[in-house]
């Protein structure tokens, strides 16, 4: 059997794959966090809850309305995005003039409420969500066995990340967003509806989180706690990457996912803290983060 550093190649590649999958979710979530923070100056603690809501929306659509994975992939982010827009319009908006910490505290309260509600309604244990028929099974790549769904998650989330990056960097809407990030007052004086842009951005961020949730549903169990487990790691990812750059958030997400997967191969005990250790090291060497602009 082929080995790498004394580890069977199969195990090595298997963990690398899991790392890439986790990295996909980290990238999607930290991307949304970075977009929201860029424009709203709010750290969206409810991001994990919105991820969980996306997974639950897919599960509820299937269980109660018989709506399958593919429509849910569009419907769930739309629903959660709308909910996010409503929350921004009615509540979050009042906090922009205050210290950014209040935005963090508000969204933390929101996350607790949403999570508590779902735990009350559906219990703490997870609900299984079947892999869509089109993506079941796997292919033998010769050196390893790749479940089709996992390959799909990596490819699709990469596409979404790059698509979002293209929208922000290359389109007119994206240029408005970037301009409003730099100087909202000036942009508004040019006749661009900045408050609407803010609502749109929060909705978009929430929808991205929900999309990640739908993608995660067939891999992990759909559980009310899935959001709070991942959000703290994503915060560490965001600290490592620095929130100044969209591409930085994406790259850091994948990198840290892979780092976590590889740690599982070489030193399993440390796998759930490795991202925090990397964060500490980055803070020592480059306090502004790998891609950060603001110190």
């Amino acid at each position: 059997m082929t080995t790498i550093f004394g580890i069977p190649l199969q195990a090595f590649l298997g963990q690398l794959l899991i790392g890439l999958i986790n990295g996909s979710f980290y990238a999607l979530l930290s991307l949304g966090l970075a977009i929201i923070f860029g424009l709203l100056r709010v750290i969206n603690f409810a991001h994990g809850a919105q991820y969980m809501l996306g997974a639950f929306a897919a599960w509820l659509l299937l269980s109660y309305f018989g709506i399958g994975y593919w429509p849910a992939l569009i419907l769930a982010p739309l629903l959660v995005g709308l909910l996010g827009a409503v929350i921004e319009r009615t509540m979050l908006r009042r906090l922009y003039s205050l210290d950014p910490l209040y935005g963090l505290l508000f969204t933390f309260g929101l996350a607790l409420t949403v999570e508590g509600t779902f735990r009350y309604l559906y219990g703490a244990s997870g609900q299984p969500y079947a892999t869509p028929a089109l993506l079941t099974g796997g292919t033998n790549l010769g050196f390893m066995f790749l479940p089709v769904y996992r390959g799909w998650v990596i490819a699709f989330s990469l596409a979404v990340c790059l698509g979002t990056w293209l929208v922000i960097e290359k389109t007119k809407l994206g240029s408005y967003l970037r301009a409003a990030t730099e100087n909202p007052v000036l942009v508004q004086s040019f006749g661009i509806n900045v408050p609407f842009l803010l609502t749109l951005t929060y909705g978009l961020g929430a929808a991205l989180a929900a999309l990640a949730g739908v993608l995660a549903a067939p891999i992990y169990q759909v559980s009310p706690l899935m959001g709070s487990n991942i959000i703290i790691i994503v915060f560490a990812v965001v600290v490592v990457g620095g929130m100044g750059s969209i591409m930085g958030a994406i790259i850091t997400g994948y990198m840290l996912g892979v780092a976590e997967g590889l740690t599982k191969v070489f030193y399993p005990e440390a796998s759930n803290i490795v991202i925090f250790v990397i964060m500490a090291i980055v803070l020592l060497l480059r306090p502004a983060g790998l891609f950060g602009r603001d110190a």
Binding site: R94, L95, Y102, L105, F106, F108, L112, G116, Y120
Partner: peptide
Amino acid sequence: SEFPVTIVTGLVFMACVLLFR
């Protein structure tokens, strides 16, 4: 009661931040 504490603490949190900081 059966009612989860987190819902209430979450709501109190939001109310505090929005209404009486």
